[in-house]
Amino acid sequence: MTQNESISECRHPRKVKNNGYWVCPLCAEVLDRVITFHPKRAFSEEEVKSRRQTEPVLKKWAHRTLSDDSRDYLNKKIPNNTKRMFNRCNKWQIQAWTNESLNRNLITSESLFRTLKSNFSTPDYVWKEAKKIYFKCAEKQLSRGRSIKDLVIASLYTSMRVHEQPGSLKDLLTDSGFNIKKNRIAKCFKLLVQEGILSELGLILKPAAPPINKYCSDLGLSLEESNKIIKFYNKIPFKLKNGRDLNGVAGAAIYIFSSKSQREVAEVVGVSEATVRTRYKELENIAFKKERLYK
């Protein structure tokens, strides 16, 4: 038998790799090219996103499967041990379903927003704006080295300032139930303004509106008196509000149109009696010149 006949009769019982090709070791015939299904290595963020195939896609504000309620779907109370187990499973679920730190950040902040929303009766558009502001913070990686809780509260306070919702930062921290110092939230609030997040979203920051309705309710004033005070407060010129504590201005307006003493007003508003007297002297001429408008 010649060599050519032996090569033609070889049916390639086995094959080996040689320089990127499958080669028969008996007859040295090149059978096929070695094809690897391993993806190419990605060195930049764009290559990672373009070659990503099997990662689950999540919404910006995805709801988790764990409920905040303490009862199951049969309305049976969940034991504390089971609840702790579900909390641990929820943490692992977040880590398993999110490969990017941005998604983990947004899911953590979503739970904090739900906790805050249960403590406040703020309109829905304020919460939506606060989430947009926080999403911009997370995109710019402002949460690195800072607490997510601080940025969430600062975003909510910024949204309240944009939509002129009454409430001070002190009241916000008191009602939130979080043990956080005021200066930490103030630093995060200044950071949001300095980074230009509001200008990117087309928002305008407005002065904080004091909760005049709350003050009038605590003082036991009637609805007619509170409406008169709010109407007068909205007519006060900007130059008399700029650079001043607006709670003191609101206290002076309450003192003008009510029969309460300076001490009672100062205790409810949270300023000193001297502040109420000073603001009263500034607003006295305006109030009595336009008194016929508020009767």
Rank of each mutant, 00 (worst) to 15 (best):
N285R: 11
M85W: 02
Q3G: 08
R279F: 13
L151P: 06
N234T: 10
C24L: 05
L293N: 14
F43E: 11
I236A: 08
R52K: 05
S143A: 15
M160W: 14
L31S: 00
V126E: 09
T115G: 10
L283W: 08
G196K: 01
E267A: 09
S258I: 09
W92Q: 03
F189P: 08
V276Y: 02
R263I: 09
D218K: 06
S44Q: 10
Q141F: 12
L203K: 09
A253C: 15
K187W: 00
G20K: 04
T36Y: 04
H38S: 07
Y73I: 12
K59L: 02
P39S: 13
C89D: 08
S111T: 06
S8M: 10
R52D: 02
L102Y: 02
V265N: 03
H38E: 05
K132V: 13
K228H: 00
K295G: 15
E264I: 12
Y134L: 15
S67F: 01
L223M: 04
P207M: 04
R14D: 09
K281E: 01
E225M: 12
N103S: 01
L240C: 07
S261E: 00
T278R: 11
K117H: 15
S226Y: 05
K149I: 15
K170P: 11
K241E: 12
F238G: 11
K140L: 08
P79C: 07
E55R: 12
A252E: 09
P79M: 06
V30C: 04
L191D: 02
E224M: 08
P166I: 11
C137F: 11
K132A: 13
F135H: 15
A42D: 09
R144Q: 14
S44L: 07
C27G: 03
R64Q: 07
I78S: 14
K290G: 11
K59P: 09
L293Y: 14
F135N: 14
W127Q: 11
Y73P: 04
A250P: 12
K170H: 09
F135S: 14
K149P: 15
F288N: 08
T115V: 14
N285A: 14
I180G: 03
N90I: 03
E110T: 10
